[in-house]
Design a protein around this nucleic acid. Structure first.
Length: 513
RNA sequence: GGUCCGUUCGUCUAGGGGUUAGGACGUAUCCCUUUCACGGAUAAAACACGGGUUCGAUUCCCGUACGGACUACCA
């Protein structure tokens, strides 16, 4: 009873790992760490037709980016490897044969056409569930209907075959799901699933049971889409005689599209206006590109925190959790049952929170890097000033550079609405005088407070209320009616640039009634 | 269609037989402020519906509706 907790994340490398898979990985990681156990990554690549180059590395890199790398994986093998099912290929057949021997599986020789014909026949006969099951198998070509000799002959001649599970006709399968409680399914609604495919590879159903058993998996934490096949898996454990060591199941609620219409899928890509993948991904076959959370500017801590709360909560009102705090607080019984709609606004809020609490130095690095990428060398002191100017208004790291463009580029156009309302004679008079003062004496120290003092003095001398013309001043210098602290902007720009911009505005903007 | 799973503010959710049904995001208003943002305050906003059980049900049970997953030699 004191065995070590071992959980696995078992994606198939068929493309970019999507965000739902990432959450599954996270919950597995959190549970493993919370229980002092191990988190394994197993690559489920039994469908060779769907293999996508680069997908494995993508999965590895995604987990590493979030800081939830597995304890055992293809790249960090433990004692129960290999961790790629294609490399365990040889190990599955004996288990399938064992099942045949025990009378829980059988050979089937039906062609795709014959299967199709069977389904059509059943559909035409208004059978509610046209499937290969305990009834229909008696009319198909398999080792249950064929003579022993004929089966041997077909096998010996190399005829393609699959091995199917032989499900009992009338039996209730029940198991306790850690999230949903007792789940009960009657075998009459289940079909004889293929266990070994004709290409010699196992299907997911066989492979995951054999591997979980061999790898000492204690808890299977996976998406709700697996719930319908869980009874089959339970049956398989029973057939193998492994029931007493069967892992516990926890089926996670699905991640839904924001409109609640179906589960969030890979195909949603960027259509919804936000990433559904952790990292950028280019499909090697179609060349189609999808954006990732990382490249969009989400910080790993923010995505982690956001993901953790999609279906789980700590039971109190705390919301900000570091990875280690999540580990500490995590428990499966606080995972909800209902599907969760994906709300990107909340993700942004988490990102803002984590981004804004970074040190100024750290934030300045973002600005410096982007500036450099744009071919601009920013002086450190100036960069620091920019960061102070913008750090309460950014959502993504790239916003430091993006939102500071008003500093590097003088406006060539002016917001018409603001101009229409605020560009008047009083404003022009103040600006005229202020620019002249700046041009006359550039020896004065020009920081935010002195720039402001001078502006206030200018307005006062003209007997004009500063508040009335402030918007126009901002408009003249930045082109817009809204933005970061204007006097700080002035300080960064310097008196000459401010004067120059004012002159341009004065010459460009016509007076309106 | 069948099987299974689900349903508390727009969203993520807390709660649980008797509560002013709590928080967060988002939205709105106000304050701060030269603007916007930040921050602060306030507000609007939910127990899907119908039956039971009960003194009492949003909470327990059963139906209905709605939503979702699955229904491949894919995972």
């Amino acid at each position: 009873m004191n065995q070590e907790v071992r959980v696995r994340f078992a994606p198939s490398p068929t493309g970019a790992l999507h965000i739902g898979g990432l959450r599954t990985a996270l919950y597995n990681y959190l549970f493993a760490k919370k229980m002092g156990g191990k988190f394994l990554l197993r690559i489920e690549d039994t469908d060779q037709t769907r293999f996508v180059p680069g997908a494995e590395e993508y999965i590895q890199e995604s987990l590493a980016w979030l800081g939830i790398s597995p304890d055992e994986s293809p790249w960090k093998p433990g004692a129960v490897g290999p961790y790629r099912q294609s490399e365990r290929k040889e190990s599955y057949l004996p288990y399938a044969l064992d099942l045949i021997e025990k009378g829980h599986a059988y050979y089937a020789f039906d062609t795709a056409e014959e299967l199709e014909a069977m389904r059509e026949r059943l559909t035409a006969a208004r059978v509610v569930q046209p499937q290969y099951n305990s009834i229909t198998r008696t009319q198909m070509k398999n080792s249950l209907t064929l003579s022993k000799a004929e089966v041997q002959e077909r096998l010996a001649s190399g005829q393609p075959y699959v091995i199917r599970a032989k499900l009992p006709l009338k039996e209730e399968v029940r198991f306790q799901d850690l999230i949903r409680g007792w789940v009960v399914v009657h075998t009459s609604t289940l079909d004889d699933k293929v266990l070994m495919k004709s290409d010699g590879m196992p299907t997911y159903h066989l492979a995951n049971i054999v591997d979980d058993h061999l790898m000492g998996i204690t808890h299977v934490i996976r998406g709700e889409e697996w719930l319908p096949s869980a009874p089959l898996h339970v049956l398989l454990y029973r057939f193998f005689g492994w029931e007493e060591s069967m892992p516990q199941f926890a089926h996670l609620p699905l991640l839904l599209k924001p409109d609640g219409n179906g589960k969030l899928s890979k195909r949603d890509g960027d259509k919804l206006g936000f990433p559904v993948f952790p990292l950028n991904w280019t499909d090697p076959f179609s060349g189609e590109k999808s954006s990732g959370f990382r490249e969009t500017g989400y910080l790993p801590d923010a995505l982690l925190n956001f993901l953790a709360f999609l279906g789980w909560n700590p039971g109190d009102e705390r919301e900000i959790f570091s990875l280690s705090e999540l580990v500490e607080a995590f428990s499966i019984d606080r995972i909800g049952k209902a599907g969760t709609k994906f709300d990107i606004a909340k993700a942004k809020w988490f990102n803002e929170h984590y981004l804004r609490q970074l040190s100024v130095e750290h934030q300045r690095e973002y600005l410096l890097q982007d500036a450099q990428a744009a071919g601009v060398q920013l002086e450190k002191g100036k960069a620091t000033a920019v960061v102070h100017l913008l750090r309460e208004r950014v959502t993504f790291p790239g916003d430091f550079w993006k939102d500071s463009q008003l500093l590097w580029q003088a406006p060539s156009e002016f917001d018409e609405e603001v101009a229409g309302k605020k560009w008047n004679l009083e404003a022009k008079t103040v600006l005229e005088t202020y620019a002249a003062a700046l041009e006359a004496d550039n020896s004065i120290p020009f920081d935010a407070s002195s720039a402001k003092a001078l502006l206030e003095a200018t307005a006062e001398a003209l007997e004009i209320k500063l508040g009335k013309v402030m918007q126009a001043v901002r408009l003249a210098v930045t082109g817009w009616g809204a933005g970061p602290d204007l006097m700080e902007v002035f300080a960064i720009l310097g008196p000459q640039e401010v004067a120059k911009r004012i002159r341009f505005a004065l010459h460009t903007l016509p007076l309106v009634g």
